[in-house]
Amino acid sequence: MSVVTSPLAGMRVIEMGSSVAGPYAGWVFAQLGAEVIKVEDPRTGDATRTWGPRNVHGETAIFETMNNGKKSITVDLSDAVESRALADLIVTTADVVLQNLRPGFAERCGVGQSQMTAAKPELVYCDLGAYGKGGDMAHLPGYDPLMQGFTGIAEGTGTEHSPARVVAPVTDFMTGMWAVIGALAALQGRARTAAGSAVDVSLMESGIALMTMFVSSFQSTGQRPTRRGLQGPLVSPNDGYQAEDGLIMIVCGTNSLFGKLCRAINREDLLNDPLFVDPDTRLLNAPALKEELESVLQTRSRAHWMDVIGDAGVPISPVHHVDEMMQHPQAKAVGIMQSLQAEPSQDGDHDFETVRLPVRFQQERAGYDTKGPTLGEHNALFTPFVERAKL
């Protein structure tokens, strides 16, 4: 990583996190150049070390994805000496702490937010919780599926027959991103005032924030979000349409774009059809419009329509499987994927591809190309603090 792509070089982040939200926040810091020290239970490590199939490094794919570029130390927080040593490490060296352990556990071990910010006022300490601080549910643990259900995301997703979860753990990722945004804002404030901050984010609040548009819409209309599958709200065309070899997404947010679409597929007659003459009638008659469009789109391939409709200036995209996306020339052109070199093996070397940070600085992509740490791989940096805590 160059100086340009490592704007947080020289910063130390202590990540007391497991699963997704906390580690994702730590991963973002690491990709931006910070030294991220991941604190793990010596008996089990991060929970994601056991989630799903192993990759070529012997780690699970999800652990590798969330933790490449970090260091790992093992700390038994139930041990008074090791807890004191971790507190010493934080007070002596840390700029930022990320914490998403079970509610109240860090405090019981002496390394909670109020304890550490009192011991080091310039520290930025971010708690990533489930249901937020305050209220009867503040003490409960939580995962992304629960929050997609709680916040209305799942109920508004899927088809008329059944709600559905968004396949990506959106509340986890958003909570991680809000943690980074909050911590960086607090660091900017510290540069002016020399004072740190206690930063709080939660899965529930991040999920509610994702529903902002629908919260406002409900207050205006009294209507709940309607499950529509691939069909979007507000305008039409705004859906997945069947081509000869798969689905394509087309969105026409203006009369001008609808006109370009109709001319591109040689269906100018639709422009004068009273069912489709303006945005309101097109939205009201979206099923009929979809039938008319698919009668043409089904006759040619996705690639054909990408050329014809795309060249007309109409927003269009194929609906990809994940492997199709990974192999697409556009994904390769922007360099969003990176290969983590495997260790030599009898089967030969194999690269494991993971996603890099979706940010560039001066046209350079930020991010590490190193694999995730083995459990306790960097314990040597913690040992002096343990020895001092024994005195």
Rank of each mutant, 00 (worst) to 15 (best):
D95H: 12
D95G: 09
D95N: 12
V96S: 01
V97P: 02
Q99A: 04
L101R: 05
L101I: 13
R102T: 14
P103M: 10
P103E: 11
G104L: 08
A106T: 14
C109Y: 06
C109T: 12
C109L: 03
G112F: 11
G112R: 07
G112W: 03
G112I: 05
Q115W: 00
Q115Y: 00
M116E: 00
T117R: 11
A118R: 07
A118P: 02
A119G: 00
K120M: 11
K120H: 00
E122I: 01
E122Y: 02
E122M: 11
E122T: 13
C126F: 02
C126G: 02
A130W: 05
Y131V: 10
Y131T: 05
Y131W: 14
G132D: 00
G132S: 06
G134K: 11
G134E: 10
D136N: 00
D136M: 02
M137V: 08
A138E: 15
G142M: 06
D144G: 10
P145C: 09
L146W: 00
M147I: 12
M147D: 03
M147N: 04
G149H: 04
F150M: 15
F150K: 13
T151R: 08
T151A: 13
T151W: 05
G152K: 03
G152M: 08
G152S: 09
I153V: 08
A154R: 02
E155T: 14
E155A: 15
E155F: 13
G156S: 10
T159D: 13
E160K: 07
E160S: 09
H161K: 04
H161R: 04
S162T: 14
P163V: 08
P163Q: 04
V167G: 15
A168R: 10
V170L: 15
D172M: 08
D172Q: 06
D172R: 01
D172G: 01
F173E: 07
M174H: 06
T175D: 05
I181L: 15
L184A: 11
A185T: 03
A186W: 06
A186N: 06
